[in-house]
Write a protein that binds this DNA or RNA. Sequence first.
DNA 1: TTAGGGGTTCACGCCAGCGTGAAGGTCAAG
DNA 2: CTTGACCTTCACGCTGGCGTGAACCCCTAA
Lengths: 116, 116
Amino acid sequence: MLIGELAERTGVSARALRHYEDRDLLVPARDANGYRIYSESDIPRVAQIKAMIAAGLGTDTIRRYIDCARTGDHGVSLEMCPDLRAELDALAALLDSRQNAIRETRERLCALASDH
Amino acid sequence: MLIGELAERTGVSARALRHYEDRDLLVPARDANGYRIYSESDIPRVAQIKAMIAAGLGTDTIRRYIDCARTGDHGVSLEMCPDLRAELDALAALLDSRQNAIRETRERLCALASDH
DNA sequence: TTAGGGGTTCACGCCAGCGTGAAGGTCAAG
DNA sequence: CTTGACCTTCACGCTGGCGTGAACCCCTAA
């Protein structure tokens, strides 16, 4: 399928899909006229990427994840994964601390409201 | 105290402190020569701002928080606070969803590792 | 007087994930 | 042949929180 159709079926803009290609997240084949050709199996891939973007992961991290996953499919080595795992842990920890900070701020707000 | 001393004592760069002033988060008095003059009480203020920045809050939101807090001190109205509270809730919810997405990704990573 | 270590105001750079034209090729339908 | 809906490649804009000079003033000590 062409980029427009994939965009429509995934809810991700065509611009974003081209961006993913720039970042080597999803590199489609090309037709004779230069058009990008995607397959059905690219739909779940896009969903994956979309979810990871929403999770706050950078494209670079996602690309490493994809590489790791492909390597995994072929049953080869998983040597890059530990770094990745650590990165996800670090990110999760960061989100934790942010949530705590926000909670504290919110509590201070409540304190102000009930104080006087 | 001057900006350099406050920077050193708070661990926030002088550049950042000037940025806070641009954003009306912390507006110091000025000496005859134009130097910014901060007071001791600005130290905890900076700590506050620093924490809220780390929490992922935007300077605009922080400024509204500060205005609200001042208003609270003087016992006047708290009419701007509901919006703020809602904003903090929304942000916290966003962090929640991101954490879930990261957790899922991490689980998929584990699945890959144990799959084969 | 000179150096040095404060301070000041611009104003551009950076990262990230796209949005948004601009300018033009492709292709099927009327 | 023309319209119009697709597609292509630049390439600048935007948001945010600063970093990093540049060019210049202020004050003190040697």
